[in-house]
Design a protein around this nucleic acid. Structure first.
Length: 575
RNA sequence: CGGGAUGUAGCGCAGCCUGGUAGCGCGUACGGUUCGGGACCGUAAGGUCGGAGGUUCAAAUCCUCUCAUCCCGACCA
């Protein structure tokens, strides 16, 4: 491709509304443009990269035995009502009516549609195992889209669905996808980690997320420094063996009311009463679809809503508003406590050994000290309800853990029979018995993978694309477009490389050298060939690697072979 | 949805407080000089100042409403 023919609008300055580096660089490198919040157009360069990633995905999916299909983006409400998700999916599901007043939604995911297909077409045990995938745009009406392609509302996703006869087969399918995902992200040049994850509203028995480690990631990841335990913060278990108990050996004191005018937060209370956060109990009031619940955690801990949801077995959980708190506790937020509360109370395990606790008094400007469970209040259930902290220990081996940030580029779920039951997807086994199909589902955010790759591969001059996903493999910069020798050397090399299948961008603009260098660096093409009249007089071209800056003068004759070898090496190093 | 901020030329911004002819840099077009790390000189095009209403002789500027975008939080695969 010739630069003068390519629609590649690069920007010198960083657009004001781009915060993270991948978003800034994708805009500056002319890969994407925003249409409206969370919705982007892919320009030629961006689309090429997307297609490269898609190609890798397709190759690895096919290798893993999956077959490509393409499902509709518009989906009828009936299917969602059947699965029960029309009501529980929430506002993220963009709903609308057609001219007849029938309800539809834009597909945020395709479990319903694929299960519908399978229940109609798959009848016999002979038809499985089966794995179908598609690469298609999803729409999720995010509360807060951000960071460019990292969290868009409309985005390209690869979603795969496996169908097996039984648990054993489903485990194999899951493993096959797990392996395929590892290969895919490796080939995309990503440094990533597989972590245990919460299943959220997709549901199912367990799941893993494939996380790219990056400071700009939206998720926190807990991992062990010794064993290979790693989990999303939402999912990470607290090791109960390491809950401090010895600090709570003081004899029980009588409960007392203390006046704490305008003292609400943990910090304020501990300071005002000269106690440590470990003596304090935070009482959080949550609303669920059925009843409100009070959740107790120690002052230095944070509630993990995902765990609360799972313990209560509810789909929706919301922190109660100011009004509800006032109604239920009789006090404004900041003074809630367990004593005298009439709603269900559950507590984190770390609360269990506590004695002489400090908590809100359910009365404005009042806290209680010397509160003890049993005499002053009761808890209906203890469970792991809080977020892991860096002072917790690994739930598997008890060793030190660390907390990092990550970008979720892939997520695999073992669904079991959740959808096949809801939608009656059954088959006849060898004995003629009707059984539910066992499912799994597997997603990859394509655009997010590109964004993550840029987060991990850039420098101050721009993007450094790994060869397998680079929009072009080679960029040729003839520095003097008025010099016919330079131009013809560039044209010759360009044609040689193209004819041997390389993807080449020829910067044929009549621009100064600096401009061409800057744009080549910004766009991040792995191999740069500079053709200048001085070195050309010696019969030499300059070949430079974007990633390392390594520069080599090579003779003009045979330069094409050498460059083709470099491309091969750079592709292979990722496989 | 709660908190914060911003909307002025394609991009980055100034002007607004204290109302009075809409500006700067980059980019774009044309001419010239230059030519291996975002050159220089000259000329030119390009703006309903996000939108609506109000105050005023006069509004980018003051007031009210509204829309959009971004950030933090909550929420989320």
């Amino acid at each position: 491709m010739r630069y003068t023919k390519l629609f590649l609008p690069t920007l010198r300055e960083v657009p004001a509304d781009a915060e993270v580096i991948s978003h800034q660089l994708m805009l500056r490198a002319g890969m994407i443009r925003k249409l409206t919040s969370g919705i982007y157009t892919y320009l030629p360069l961006g689309l090429r990269v997307i297609k490269k990633v898609e190609k890798i995905i397709r190759e690895e999916m096919e290798r893993a035995g999956a077959q490509e299909v393409l499902m509709p983006m518009v989906q009828p409400s009936e299917l969602w009502e059947e699965s029960g998700r029309w009501d529980v999916y929430g506002k993220e599901l963009l709903r609308f009516k057609d001219r007849h007043g029938r309800d539809y939604c834009l597909g945020p995911t395709h479990e319903e549609v694929i299960t519908d297909l399978i229940r109609k077409e798959v009848r016999s045990y002979r038809d499985m195992p089966l794995n179908l995938y598609q690469i298609q745009n999803k729409f999720r009406d995010e509360i807060r889209p951000r960071f460019g392609l990292m969290r868009g509302r409309e985005f390209s996703m690869k979603d795969a669905y496996s169908f097996d006869l039984d648990e054993e087969g489903a485990v194999k399918s899951y493993q096959a996808m797990f392996d395929a995902y590892n290969r895919i992200f490796e080939r995309c040049g990503l440094y990533f980690k597989a972590v245990e994850a919460d299943t959220g509203n997709i549901g199912g028995s367990f799941s893993h997320e494939l996380m790219v480690l990056a400071d700009t990631g939206e998720d926190a990841i807990v991992s062990c420094t010794e064993c290979d335990y790693a989990a999303n913060m939402e999912k990470a278990e607290v090791n109960p063996d390491y809950i401090e108990k010895e600090e709570y050996e003081a004899p029980p004191a009588p409960m007392e009311k203390v006046s704490t005018p305008d003292v609400r937060t943990v910090e304020e209370v501990t300071q005002f009463l000269s106690v440590t956060p470990k003596q304090l109990v935070k009482t959080m009031i949550f609303e669920t679809s059925s009843e409100p619940v009070a959740v107790l955690v120690r002052g230095n801990h944070e509630v993990n809503p995902a765990k609360v949801k799972n313990v209560l077995g509810v789909a929706n959980l919301e922190l109660a508003g100011e009004e509800t708190v006032l109604k239920l506790t009789g006090a404004p937020a900041g003074f809630a406590g367990a004593v005298g509360l009439s709603i269900k109370i559950i507590a984190d395990r770390a609360v269990e050994p506590m004695k002489n606790m400090v908590m809100g008094g359910n009365e404005k400007d009042v806290h209680l000290i010397g509160v003890n469970r049993g005499t002053d209040f009761e808890v209906s259930e203890f469970a792991d309800l809080r977020l892991v902290t860096s002072s917790d220990r690994c739930p598997r081996c008890g060793k030190v853990i660390e907390i990092k940030r990550g970008i979720e580029v892939g997520h695999i779920f073992k669904l079991g029979d959740k959808y096949s039951k809801a939608l009656s997807a059954t088959y006849l086994d060898q004995n003629g018995n009707e059984r539910y199909v066992i499912m799994g589902c597997y997603g990859i955010g394509v655009g997010r993978t590109v964004a993550a790759a840029i987060e991990q591969n850039h420098d101050k001059n721009g993007i450094i694309f790994p060869m397998p996903i680079a929009p072009y493999q080679v960029v040729i910069l003839p520095l003097q477009m008025r010099d016919s020798d330079v131009v013809s050397a560039a044209e010759t090399l360009y044609n040689q490389l193209i004819s041997q299948g390389a993807e080449v961008l020829l910067d044929d603009r009549d621009e100064r050298a600096g401009v061409k260098f800057k744009d080549a660096d910004l766009v991040g093409i792995p191999i740069r060939v500079t053709i200048g009249k001085k070195s050309l007089k010696e019969g030499q071209l300059e070949v430079r690697l974007r990633a390392t800056g390594e520069t080599e003068l090579v003779p003009r004759e045979g330069a094409d072979r050498m460059i083709l070898d470099m491309i091969k090496d750079l592709v292979r190093s990722r496989q």
